[in-house]
Design a binder for these strands. Structure first.
Length: 492
RNA sequence: CGGGGUGUAGCACAGUCCGGUUAGUGUACCUGGUUUGGGACCAGGGGGUCGCAGGUUCGAAUCCUGCCACCCCGACCA
């Protein structure tokens, strides 16, 4: 492991790229735009999955799995959706390779093995799933249908960045069908709340809930709700979306049900997803120039114990203490690692675990053995205290909770102190260009104005916030009437 | 997909302009020893299709052509 990370203040994006690699989260692969998620990074993703999966199940959803490939004819059935993704689809056209007649050691795509119908590698699964739902739904008694799947999807991106935008990524996609419009809308909101709760409570990242504008919404949806988070460089990151699909997919795939009066109606749909992009949000929201800062609830290792010793005898004594601490903490459900390697010096280990964002570090050395103490260090504040061993162990569960809460509070304060309200176009431009963060401003509601603002400032409307200022005013750009403020920002 | 840059040991780089012994440095790695309260030190050692494929040449990391990958800036997007 080489020393040092670029400074956030000097080059934020380089800092991010290096951090992802040096903290062993992920790396680029031999495949363009696709990443290898390394064990430590995947451990964090697994923790996210675990919590989300629990929350989905608590709200009545079941997991299932649908195919990776979508026949082109199915894919194009819902036109808006198909058009929205057409430009970034990987397509399977052949099913066999064969030896190159000109060079026996090489393989070529067998021209005789062309598929009759091309298969689209799913950029999202609405098409296959709704095509299946057609067979699953006959009566109102089959509704609601509440399904989630954990899967990989492919979107052929021009420019990729580890976790934030990769050609293949992992996500979950919920797809539900309902008898009434109201029920589907309620589901859409409920799942947005689940996401917001997860991101705030477990990831410790403050989010803003709102609705996407017409031009930013999911192709094929009636409405798209979203949560937006602010990164340390002031840019916005869309952390999750929940779509009210109306009857668009039901009509496209002919999914009807008999209501309790025996009349046929189209079902109402929703879909919602979060992806490995959340890893990017987690990294960018809290980490510093020393490395990752992980909220305790998602840290694969919550406490690391580092012995400081001379010789085997001393190590043996310290190890006995460490074992006691480990057992006691584990019995409280805390994950602990004891790093007794003699191949690295303590200072090296300190730096290493800071890079990897381990929330708490316990150091035990000869002085501690004499005094019955340990040194306890917090990753987020770098605060170090020497405590009696029993006191330290007793304090840790509570301290982890405190850290979790404080990490969230810092994110919350950062977001609010970097959210500015303005009615002046000059000030708007100045904030977007020089300060960054969110800008709350009036907008006349037209796509033309939205585009124009994007062209002039690179800022987009991140959302029409639910709990924003609902008073009317004049559009920041055109001066036309506006019914409420919306949130502008530069975005990832 | 456009503009720019980079590809040499696990990683970070020098060497390339101006072709010429055995391709070098730091770090990491292996062995032995001394060390251990914030990224240890000494000694010895191993590791290279110089991104890939062609070409020019007596001779190519170096020159030419094509391709691939990655990074930065744009357009597109979760």
């Amino acid at each position: 492991m080489s020393k040092g990370l670029p400074k956030r203040s000097e080059n934020y994006s380089e800092w991010y790229n290096e951090l992802v690699k040096k903290a062993d989260l992920a790396e680029n692969s031999a495949v363009r735009g696709c990443m290898v998620i390394k064990p430590y990074g995947f451990a964090i993703w697994e923790k996210m999955q675990q919590e989300l999966d629990r929350m989905f199940k608590e709200t009545g959803h079941q997991n299932a799995y649908f195919p990776l490939f979508v026949p082109k004819s199915l894919f194009e059935a819902e036109e808006q959706n198909a058009e929205g993704f057409a430009k970034e689809c990987a397509v399977v056209t052949h099913y066999r390779l064969t030896n190159d007649p000109d060079n026996k050691s090489k393989l070529i795509v067998d021209p005789k093995a062309r598929l009759e119908e091309e298969l689209v590698v799913r950029p999202t699964s609405e098409a296959v799933i709704w095509n299946t739902y057609k067979n699953w739904i006959q009566s109102y008694r089959d509704l609601p249908l509440l399904i989630n799947q954990w899967a990989n999807v492919v979107r052929w991106e021009m420019r990729t960045r580890l976790f934030l935008r990769t050609a293949e990524f992992l996500w979950q996609e919920g797809h539900t069908a309902h008898a009434t419009k109201d029920e589907a809308i309620t589901e859409t909101k409920q799942m947005l709340d689940v996401y917001a709760q997860f991101v705030e409570e477990f990831m410790g990242v403050k989010v803003l809930k709102g609705q996407k504008t017409e031009s930013e919404k999911f192709a094929g949806a009636v409405d798209t709700l979203c949560i937006e988070a602010m990164m340390q460089d002031g840019k916005a990151l869309q952390a999750g979306t929940s779509h009210f699909l109306g009857q668009n997919f039901a009509e496209a795939f002919d999914v009807k049900f008999s209501n309790n009066e025996g009349k046929l109606e189209y079902v109402w749909g929703t879909s919602w997803g979060v992806s490995t992009r959340l890893m990017g949000a987690l990294i960018m929201a809290h980490s510093d120039d020393q490395g990752l800062v992980l909220p305790p609830k998602l840290a694969p290792i919550q406490v690391v114990i580092v012995p400081i010793f001379k010789g085997d005898d001393q190590l043996k004594q310290i190890s006995e203490k460490a074992d006691t601490i480990t057992k006691e903490l584990r019995s409280k459900g805390i994950s602990v690692k004891y790093d007794d390697r003699s191949t690295h010096k303590p200072g090296w280990k300190f730096a290493e675990y800071e890079l990897k964002g381990v929330p708490l570090r316990i150091a035990i050395g000869p002085k501690d053995m004499e005094n019955g103490t340990v040194e306890l260090a917090r990753r987020d504040t770098k605060e170090k205290t020497v405590l009696q061993l029993e006191e330290a162990v007793a304090k840790i569960p509570e301290l982890l909770e405190t850290m979790q809460a404080e990490i969230f509070n810092r994110s919350k304060e950062f977001t609010s102190s970097n959210t500015h309200e303005t009615d002046s176009w000059d000030e708007f431009k100045d904030i977007i260009e020089n300060k960054g963060g969110f800008v709350s401003a009036h907008w006349d509601g037209t796509a033309e104005t939205e585009d124009k603002i994007k062209e002039l400032t690179k800022a987009t409307i991140r959302c029409i916030p639910f709990d924003g200022d609902k008073t009317s005013g004049k559009c920041i750009l055109t001066g036309n009437p506006s019914s409420q403020r919306v949130i502008f920002a530069k975005a990832y």
